[in-house]
Structure formats: C-alpha cells, structure tokens
Amino acid sequence: MLDKEGIAKRIAKEIKDGYYVNLGIGIPTLVANYIPEGIDVVLQSENGLLGMGPFPFEGEEDADTINAGKQTITMLPGSAIFDSAMSFGMIRAKKVNLTILGAMEVSENGDIANWKIPGKMVKGMGGAMDLVASAENIIVAMQHVNKAGESKLLPKCSLPLTGVNCVKKIVTELGVFDVLPDGGFKLIERAPGVSVEEIKNATAGKLIIEGEIPEMVI
C-alpha cells in the first residue's frame, strides 16, 4: 500500500519531458518533489505563474510570491507572471499538458466531485471546474476510500459534480486505474503488497481486470 508520498512518486512517473503541469492542492503538490531527473517540466500555478520553484529558505519568504494554495514559493529562472484571465486562458486553450488534482469521488465515466459537501463544507471550486472542463490529460490523486471506509471510485458520484467525463487516470494507495472512454476503472498496476482482491473489495464502481496485473515499480 502506498502512503501519500508514494502516490505522488507514482504520479510523477506520468510526467514527460517538455510538459507544462498544473498541480492541485494536497497530494498533487507533493508530486513536484519527485519529478524524475533529466525531465524538463514547467509548473503552472493558476494564480498567475509559470515556473514555480520550491519553498523559499527561511527568511526569504516574499508575501507577493505565492502559489494557488497561498503558500510562499520561489520562482525558477525563466518564470513568467500573468493575470488570472490569462492564466485560465492558457488552461482553456489546452496549453497545459497535464493536470493533477485531488478528489472526493470519481465515477466510472470520469465524472469528478471535489468542491462541495452539501450542508457540511462549502469552500468553493476555485480553479478546479475550469481545469477539469478543459484539460485533456487529468490524473486524480486520492485515497481509495473515504474516512468512513466507503469507496471513492463509484458507479455515479453522490456529491455535487466539478466536471463530467474528464478524469483519465486515478492513482490511489491501492493502485493505478485508467478511466475508460466507455466507462469503467481499468486496473493497470497494483500498489506494492496489495492484492487484486483487496482492490475489488474497495472499488464500488465497475472494475475491469484483464490478465495478470503487475505490481508497480516506484
């Protein structure tokens, strides 16, 4: 089974040389720490930055330089700053190659819910709805089950949707899944030490298993 860092490490393997990547808040943020050596990527932060670097050294924080999670960050050489309209312009125009975000629920047809729990949490969607509506390559990083032990990979989302038919791949602590265009979570890899049986038990939506499922290498 993977921990959060493990999920981030596995997702980092999906990043290809030359990609512009948008990382959501939570586990996706950790992906930045595991980008493979020799791969040249530029991180987009939707508050208006391309070229996001690591956190600043203590004492070098700049209140004017933050990421979309409102954390103090640095800018790498070659960074560019722009306004919020242009930021979502480049997202809408599909210039960002890969979007990685968290979710509360994903359905077997690729719908995602991650912004609202009626009566409990109303924080808002931020940029998530814009990202999922336009990005062609969306990977969800999340826990396989919620705190109540219920599967988050569902036939149909129960929470208000963020977007429809958009998630392409999911990485959880149990495995890697492709969301098929015709519907269904296709098991691609098992997390270390996790059996197909365990994955079946934790998945409420349609699970597709073809042949031997390899254990992931990270």
Binding site: F88, M125, G126, D130
Partner: peptide
C-alpha cells in the same frame, strides 16, 4: 460561488 477562470 463561481469557477475562478469564469470570475477572471
């Protein structure tokens, strides 16, 4: 509440 890109 509206999407951030829509707001901008």
């Amino acid at each position: 509440l509206i999407p951030q890109g829509t707001l901008a």
